[in-house]
Structures are given as structure tokens and as C-alpha cells.
């Protein structure tokens, strides 16, 4: 027969368990790094191809993002299978990024074929900032919050930047918003600061 709990013991159990559940965010560093590096390579590559004029359609380098989409679908399906817990935070962060993905897809379909991507980059930069900042707030991770703010700042700078140099701002934005926070997040999980 189990001994009866005192109210203090009960509160200690509740507090302990709530804390264990609270610190349970899934490790999304792989996705930040995947997208960070893909966009970084595409934007720098696009810039170099435009400068050197070696191919007729330098914007085709962005086809690489489709590879990232396919890998992401595979990665998420694999991860879902292994997932032992679903937190509300993970769910909200997931939906925020899903909304961002749909918006980017919509933009690429509607405006992409009008061949005026460069004028859109300030908006795209601003859009990168929002889900990044929200994710940083949701999982209480400062580098993501800073990354989001950097994107917003770069969006304003992009408004006054001459044409193709905006591509370099894009590379800088993903470096600050996804690549650096991605590595820091990975290190944090490795050190078990977050429970998986």
C-alpha cells in the first residue's frame, strides 16, 4: 500500500512534472541549418552568376530549394515516427512555419514568373524575420529572436540597396537567423540543456 502524500509532497510532484514537460522542445536545428545553408548557397551563387554572366538564367540556382523541400518532408516523417511527446509549443511553432512555407510558395507561384524577384527581396527578408522571432520567443531561445530582428533590420536596408546586392543581404539574413542559431541550438541539445 502506497503511503499517503502530504499536500507539500503533492505540490512538489506537480512542480517537478510540469518542469519536465515544459523544457521539452523538439530539436529543429537540422531544419534551420538545412534551410540556412540552402538559401545561403543559392543567394551567393545567384549573385556570382549575375556578376559573371556565365549562364543565361542564373535564377535557376533556386531550384536547389526543391531538393531542400523533399529532404524536409523525408526528415519530418522520419522524426514524427520517433517522437515520444507532442508539446503545444512544438505544434504552434510547426504551424507558424507551415504558414510561412505556404506564403513563400504562394509568392513564388504568383509573382515568381513575373521576373521581378529583386524588388520583392525586402518583403521576403521581412517575412524570414517573423517566424524566426516567434520561434525564438516560443522556445525561449535568444539567438533566434536576435536573428528575427536582424532580418527585419536587413529588410529596411534592402529597400535602399541597389538591385543585386540585395542577394548578399539575403545571405547575411539566413546566416544570422538560421545558420548561427542552428549551430547554437544543436550545441544546446548536445549539452542536454533541453530534454529531448
Amino acid at each position: 500500500m502506497e503511503k499517503e502524500l502530504t499536500p507539500t509532497e503533492s505540490l512538489a510532484i506537480i512542480e517537478n512534472m510540469i518542469n519536465k514537460a515544459k523544457s521539452n522542445y523538439s530539436d529543429d536545428s537540422t531544419l534551420y541549418l538545412l534551410w540556412g545553408w540552402v538559401i545561403f548557397i543559392c543567394s551567393i551563387g545567384h549573385f556570382i552568376l549575375l556578376q559573371t554572366n556565365i549562364i543565361k538564367y542564373p535564377e535557376y540556382i533556386w531550384v536547389l530549394t526543391w531538393g531542400a523541400v523533399i529532404y524536409q518532408i523525408y526528415y519530418i516523417l522520419k522524426k514524427e515516427k520517433k517522437k515520444k511527446v507532442k508539446s503545444y509549443t512544438d505544434e504552434i511553432v510547426g504551424y507558424v512555419w507551415m504558414g510561412f512555407g505556404f506564403t513563400m510558395f504562394f509568392i513564388s507561384i504568383i509573382i515568381g514568373n513575373q521576373n521581378n524577384w529583386i524588388t520583392l527581396y525586402p518583403i521576403i527578408l521581412f517575412m524570414y524575420g517573423t517566424p524566426t522571432f516567434i520561434s525564438g520567443v516560443a522556445i525561449r531561445f535568444l539567438p533566434l529572436k536576435i536573428g528575427g530582428i536582424v532580418c527585419w533590420g536587413l529588410a529596411f536596408i534592402a529597400k535602399f540597396t541597389a538591385d543585386i546586392y540585395v542577394l548578399l543581404l539575403l545571405a547575411l539574413a539566413v546566416l544570422a537567423a538560421w545558420i548561427v542559431p542552428g549551430y547554437l541550438l544543436k550545441a544546446k541539445y548536445k549539452n542536454n540543456s533541453y530534454e529531448e
Partner: peptide, 28 residues
Amino acid sequence: LHSQLRLAIISLLIGVKEADFNFIKEKT
């Protein structure tokens, strides 16, 4: 609820959408 393990299970589940058996076993 006034039992050590049942209270732990409920306190854990109140903070998450869902959790599998092994996760609860590990945490409790």
C-alpha cells in the same frame, strides 16, 4: 489524483498535447 504516480502522470500530461508510454515511464 492523490497518489504519487497518478498525480505525476496527470501533471506531466497537463503540459503537453500527448505523450507516449515510454516518455511517461522515463519522466516518472
